[in-house]
């Protein structure tokens, strides 16, 4: 397998393949990145933090998708985080406990895998998807899942660690992996290196 692209978003900056593409100082950094990228996608405003983060992380990767064949069926989403949809869960609880009106538009985002639905809709991709809850980013876990996905017949995996709950340590790390004949023993180490470099930027 081969990593063919990666992106990273946190409250301080947005990055693509190791390069800084935007710097943020304001609180609403996701809105800033969205407007800088000049994307026409009004649904963005309705999304929760998880979907917004992964939507932007995915958009940054757009050039990596260009030459891929069969992505609509053979690309699997493998996503994970540690706190599920906690930020939206709390807001939904507030909608019925404080505002006395359970909000349907919040309730539909109280599942972490909604972000994979948003990405599938955006691309019109019908492939497999799965969302895991892990205590922390675990590169070996992702590599295992990717290997098993390729064994099942998929050709690409779009993976993401999307931990966004409105905190300074929020981050959305995404990487696109293609099936290849090249045996790469150190992929797990490489993933950790990439993420650590981003985290220290």
């Amino acid at each position: 397998m081969k990593i063919i692209g990666h992106s990273y978003i946190n409250p301080r900056g947005a990055f693509l393949n190791g390069q800084n593409v935007s710097i943020a100082t304001e609180e609403n950094y996701l809105k800033k990145y969205f407007s800088e990228l000049e994307i026409d996608y009004p649904k963005f405003y309705k999304m929760d933090l998880l979907s917004k983060g992964s939507f932007l992380g995915d958009y940054l990767l757009r050039d990596s998708y260009k030459d891929l064949l069969h992505v609509e069926n053979e690309l699997q989403f493998i996503f994970a985080n540690s706190s599920s949809s906690k930020e939206t869960d709390i807001r939904f609880i507030e909608s019925y406990e404080i505002k006395k009106n359970p909000s349907p538009s919040l309730f539909v985002y109280t599942l972490p895998n909604i972000l994979t639905g948003e990405l599938a809709i955006k691309h019109k991709w019908f492939g497999e998807n799965i969302f895991f809850i892990l205590t922390k980013f675990d590169s070996n876990f992702f590599i295992d899942q990717i290997e098993m996905s390729f064994l099942r017949g998929n050709e690409y995996c779009l993976c993401g660690w999307v931990e966004m709950k409105g905190a300074p340590e929020d981050e959305c790390f995404m990487f696109l992996v293609a099936k290849s004949e090249v045996v790469n023993d150190n992929l797990s180490n490489k993933l950790n290196e990439i993420l650590n470099t981003y985290r220290n930027e």
Binding site: S82, K86, D89, I90, N113, I130, F132, T135, F141
Partner: peptide, 29 residues
């Protein structure tokens, strides 16, 4: 909530079943 909603799952499994490996949690609706 607002604490970790998955912590008790790991703890209960560890205390009762005592598996060698950590549980893999799937939350996909």
């Amino acid at each position: 909530i607002p604490l970790d909603t998955f912590e008790s799952t790991r703890k209960i499994i560890d205390e009762i079943i005592h598996t060698f490996s950590e549980p893999v949690i799937i939350s996909n609706a």
